[in-house]
Amino acid sequence: MTNQSEERPVHEAASYGDTSRKRFIGWLLGTSAGAFLGAVFYPVVRYLMPPPAAESAASTVTLAIRPEDITANTAEIFKFGSRAGILVRTPSGELRAFSAICTHLSCIVQYRPDLGHIWCACHNGHFDLNGRNISGPPPAPLEAFTVNVREDQIVVSKGD
């Protein structure tokens, strides 16, 4: 813009084809800038996403607790792979196991002997001894596991 006379010939030369040429240059710069930003930010976003953790292959776990160590109307938290489970001995003496992760906002639940059922302290969610959500905000029941007692070992397994 400092020298108008130098500017003019460019203008005149561009006057017959300038809109399409300008549009082409604009498109070229725009896509280059877009590709550049994509090439920078795609790896960054992928980098920030953690790689998927190997799913715990174990569908069965043998607990470190012996059957006689857990008395009626109490419960123990155990590790099921990388997740927490809860083993409950009901007041009638039966052993039951569930996922200990509350279905509301994934706090670890606990057994309330005074209520005789499972309770989550975070948002006051209640589950009965079948793992069903009976009161409070939890939207779904706790996942139930199968409990087998083999001699003096407790074996908990997932699903059927």
Partner: peptide, 24 residues
């Protein structure tokens, strides 16, 4: 301890409390 039940009376910082209580 990721393998301990959430303690009773758990609460967030006071400035998140109104949201926490609403969720309850």
């Amino acid at each position: 301890d990721p393998f301990a039940p959430a303690p009773a009376g758990i609460k967030p910082e006071w400035y998140f409390m109104f949201m926490f209580q609403t969720l309850k």
